[in-house]
Nucleic acid binder design. Structure first.
Length: 444
DNA sequence: AGCACA
């Protein structure tokens, strides 16, 4: 006998569940209205509204099964139907036992935005530009920036959710206006979600984090160059002009950083003309000269705060030098002029690729000044750019093609000298407590 | 008016 197939979706009796399924709700019914509806019968622990193609269905979940039964029972025998905004609502036990909310933290509105800057040049977007962009919507309290697998990201804190929402709505998916970016920087789009943070912890004003509510916050050591000059004003403006010469200070120098190591690291962004190393304040600093400012800018943005060796060792802090042309008197293990070919020099092949310590750095230095003299104009006929790529001691010449110069940067997340530069170290700023609460794979 | 991530 051909049996009539049962239709499970139209069962008129269902096993009880803490979860009730509601239908015929008014358009875009809110969570608050659902809670109001269920409250007389028990504790509503979860809801899900705007379900279904018409967004007029919902679920409410009670803390206890008996509470759900009480609600169903009440309206089963009541002359007054359940209603929301005067509209009759039909309810029944859900065929599931609990509400699964795919609401991620990114969907919960808050006063802090998680901003992902997309684009090949995302890292070149300064914190000041971000501040400017977001300030259009209200007072920006704090900004932290960091790099994760998702790329270059920032947390932007407003005073309240409303302001943050207006900024998110206006900026999500939009690109940073061109006129706010330097000439050589490509388009940078903003992807914005909410962060679960409510108050960012900013310890210093630095290139990576700012607290605009606290003018007394100390400026990070990384924002001060060798002469103690501020590179970041308390108003968040950079005080130092860009230069083709970078001043790099090396923090936590557990492993010796040789001139050749520096040459290799900095050569990834373009030809290095000259390097001068010296000791200052008990640490090692170096001046690195590029032929042009643009290359230096790219190198600085890419390397600032990064560590040469894994494990937080030899962290680079980079600022612009006031010099434009270093005067290298002698080529030795602390200073070198790569623009002079065939210069005799001590052989010092570094064994850096294995990330092994070359030697332990000791306080062997009594040098008081820099091994260069700051004479701005010297060697007027000096060959520029590729001239210095000759028979010097390029540690990895084959890996640094000349095109580097025209396209000095590399794909996001790839640090130039393989094996040495690790993924950005988050030590120092920003604090781990500021990092977004997601697993690294979930951000998009 | 009839069950939710793709």
């Amino acid at each position: 006998m051909a049996s009539v197939s049962s239709q499970p979706q139209f069962r008129y009796t269902q096993p009880p569940s803490k979860v009730l399924h509601l239908r015929n709700l008014p358009w875009e019914c809110t969570e608050e209205e659902l809670i109001e509806l269920g409250k007389p019968f028990g504790k509503v622990v979860n809801t899900k509204c705007n379900v279904g193609a018409n967004r007029n269905q919902a679920f409410i979940e009670f803390a206890d099964l008996n509470q759900a039964i009480a609600m169903i029972s009440y309206y089963a025998s009541s002359s007054e139907p359940a209603q929301v905004r005067g509209k009759t609502v039909y309810l029944q036990y859900s065929n599931r036992q609990e509400i699964v909310n795919n609401k991620t933290t990114a969907d919960v509105a808050g006063n802090v935005l998680l901003v992902t800057i997309e684009g090949a040049d995302a890292r070149l977007v300064s914190i000041d530009v971000l501040h400017l962009v977001f300030s259009a919507f209200g007072f920006v309290h704090k900004i932290t920036t960091f790099e994760k697998t998702a790329g270059f990201q920032a947390l932007v804190q407003f005073s309240d959710t409303e302001t943050a929402s207006s900024a998110k709505n206006a900026l999500d998916g939009r690109s940073i206006p061109r006129y706010l970016l330097p000439e050589h920087v490509g388009p940078c789009a903003l992807r914005i979600t909410y962060s679960a943070h409510t108050d960012l912890s900013v310890k210093f004003q630095s290139h990576r984090s700012r607290d605009y509510t606290n003018p007394y916050l100390p400026v990070a050591p990384s924002a001060i160059d060798g002469s103690g000059q501020l590179t970041v004003g308390l108003d968040g403006k950079k005080l130092e002009p860009e230069s083709n010469v970078l001043l790099a200070s090396i923090e936590n120098m557990q492993y010796a950083v040789t001139l050749d190591v520096l040459h290799m690291v900095f050569s990834a962004f373009g030809p290095v003309q000259k390097i001068a190393m010296f000791d200052k304040n008990g640490g090692v600093q170096a001046l690195i000269q590029y032929p042009d400012v643009q290359t230096a800018v790219v190198a600085k943005e890419a390397l600032e705060g990064h560590c040469i060796y894994d494990g937080g060792f030899c962290k680079l802090h980079i600022s612009y030098s006031r010099h434009t042309d270093l005067s290298i008197k002698v080529n030795n293990d602390r200073s070198r002029d790569y623009t002079i070919p065939n210069t005799p020099m001590v052989n010092s092949q570094p064994s850096i690729l294995g990330q092994q310590p070359v030697s332990v750095m000791g306080p062997t230095v009594q040098y008081n000044g820099a091994p260069y003299t700051p004479s701005p104009e010297q060697q007027p006929g000096m060959p520029q750019t590729s001239a210095g790529w000759g028979p010097g001691v390029p540690p990895m010449p084959q890996s640094m093609p000349m095109q580097m110069h025209s396209n000095p940067y590399m794909p996001p997340g790839t640090m130039p000298p393989q094996g040495m530069m690790q993924s950005p170290i988050q030590s120092g700023l920003p604090q781990s407590s500021m990092l977004p609460p997601y697993g690294s794979g979930q951000i998009q």
